[in-house]
Computed example of a mutant assay.
Amino acid sequence: MTFSLNDYLAELAPLINLDCGSLHKPGIAQVAELMAAKYQAMGGWHIKQVDCGVAGPGLEIRNQPDAAHIDVMLIGHMDTVFPVGTAAARPMTTDGERAYGPGVSDMKSGLLNIVYALRTLPPAVRDRLSLCVCMNPDEEIG
């Protein structure tokens, strides 16, 4: 798989251009839907949405959901510190060297980087290891 920065940025933009501040359940639910769709498209991943109460949904994504242990756990959060309206006021932009927007580096690109890493993981390695990706909705406050 060849990396394309343009493709990466196009995939990142929808995550940046939505409001998902802590406790903004509709936005966090949208992030969860976008992320779940990426794993579903890859195939071989079991996606479990976890009700985290007032914070919104969390995601537990595993390749071996019945495994007694987890070999590798990757963790990220779906919320930002930005209030509703920030995404419209400051949508994702780039200047040729950097990308800007609410949550662009913490944590939206981190969530997408996990996807990119797992997309390129050789199937033999993925099948040998019990992998879990956890995405929580309230890291910024919880």
Rank of each mutant, 00 (worst) to 15 (best):
A37C: 07
G96M: 03
I28C: 08
P57Q: 12
E60G: 06
E60I: 13
N63I: 01
G101Q: 12
H69S: 13
E97V: 11
D19G: 04
R98E: 06
L74D: 02
V50T: 07
A36P: 10
V104H: 10
A67H: 07
I75L: 14
F82H: 14
D19Q: 09
H24A: 05
V50N: 14
P122E: 12
A13H: 00
A99M: 09
L112Y: 02
L129P: 03
A117T: 04
T86K: 15
G27L: 09
V54D: 14
G58T: 01
A13Y: 00
D51Y: 00
Y116F: 05
A37E: 11
I47E: 10
S22I: 01
G56F: 04
G58P: 03
K25I: 15
P102F: 05
P26E: 04
F3V: 03
M73D: 02
D19R: 05
Q49S: 14
H77S: 08
N17Q: 12
E60F: 02
L59F: 04
P14C: 11
P91W: 07
S22C: 05
T120E: 14
E33W: 04
P57G: 12
V50W: 06
R62A: 15
L121K: 01
T80R: 11
T86M: 15
G27S: 01
K48V: 07
L74T: 03
G76V: 06
H46D: 15
P123H: 05
V81A: 15
G56Y: 04
N63M: 08
T120M: 11
Y116H: 06
M135E: 05
E60V: 13
G76T: 03
S109R: 12
Y8C: 10
L112A: 06
A89G: 03
L9G: 05
L131C: 07
L129K: 06
I70M: 10
V84A: 13
S130K: 09
A67M: 08
S109K: 06
P123L: 05
I70H: 08
M73L: 14
V104L: 15
N17H: 10
G21I: 10
T2R: 07
M78Q: 03
T86S: 15
L12C: 03
C52N: 02
Y8V: 05
G110N: 04
I114R: 02
